[in-house]
């Protein structure tokens, strides 16, 4: 079965809802930007970048636990970190769950407005949380919390603005089996023409090293 099709059924909907909410907060769907071109409306969720984050987190760590090295998946526990951060923020400051997001009752992070999700990330990376209440492996490990929260930001951006979404139905295959199925939307959004063989862009040389007789001069 094609993993791109089976992926949502295999992953916890909790995890998917959490990372959809993350992707949406960082690179949102913006219908108002249609005036700059239809491709400018798509956000990271439309490009399935939440699936990229889950894939990366679940394929990033192997440790020798006992006698054999084992893969340690991190997507579920990282989703739990974001949800713990969201619950703690709502309990301690004046944030509210957005009423329109009430359809995800057990995913507090997704129930926040995008701005409050960003505030949650900010509080987590500043360690303005009860570290004892976080899920493992983040419990009492503020350094790891800082690392992962920063990572989540840049990973959403790299997923969105690299060619990854264009791997289409092969996007969740092992990397050597991914195939491009179109021109990447994020590259269109950025106005990047794609990979190249070269550009006729030479505009001169301010300095040149000339080597002769075992020495060199600069002209």
């Amino acid at each position: 079965m094609n993993p791109a099709v089976s992926f949502p059924a295999n992953a916890y909907s909790y995890t998917i809802a959490t990372f959809r909410a993350l992707a949406e907060a960082i690179v949102p769907f913006t219908p108002s930007m249609a005036e700059y071109g239809a491709e400018q409306t798509a956000g990271a969720v439309q490009l399935h970048v939440h699936e990229y984050i889950i894939w990366e987190l679940d394929h990033s760590l192997t440790l020798a636990v006992g006698f054999y090295p084992e893969v340690v998946p991190l997507a579920y526990s990282t989703a739990a970190l974001l949800n713990s951060g969201a619950s703690q923020m709502v309990a301690s400051v004046n944030a509210q769950f957005a009423p329109s997001n009430g359809t995800v009752p057990h995913v507090p992070f997704a129930a926040l407005s995008p701005a409050d999700r960003v505030r949650t990330l900010s509080r987590l990376e500043r360690l303005e949380v009860d570290l004892r209440a976080l899920p493992p492996p983040f419990r009492n490990d503020g350094g790891l919390v800082k690392f992962i929260v920063d990572y989540l930001n840049r990973a959403v951006m790299f997923g969105n603005y690299s060619e990854w979404p264009a791997y289409g139905t092969t996007r969740l295959e092992t990397p050597t089996r991914r195939r491009l199925e179109g021109f990447p939307v994020g590259w269109k959004q950025a106005g990047y023409p794609g990979v190249s063989l070269g550009y006729r862009a030479l505009r001169g040389y301010p300095l040149t090293i000339i080597r002769e007789d075992g020495g060199y001069t600069i002209v």
Binding site: S122, N153, M157, F158, Y192
Partner: peptide, 21 residues
């Protein structure tokens, strides 16, 4: 750099947190 690398280095990777906050 190409856009994916440029986007995260310029806008997503920071000791300072979020500009808007």
């Amino acid at each position: 750099l190409s856009p994916g690398l440029m986007s995260f280095l310029t806008y997503g990777f920071s000791e300072a947190g979020y500009d808007a906050l």
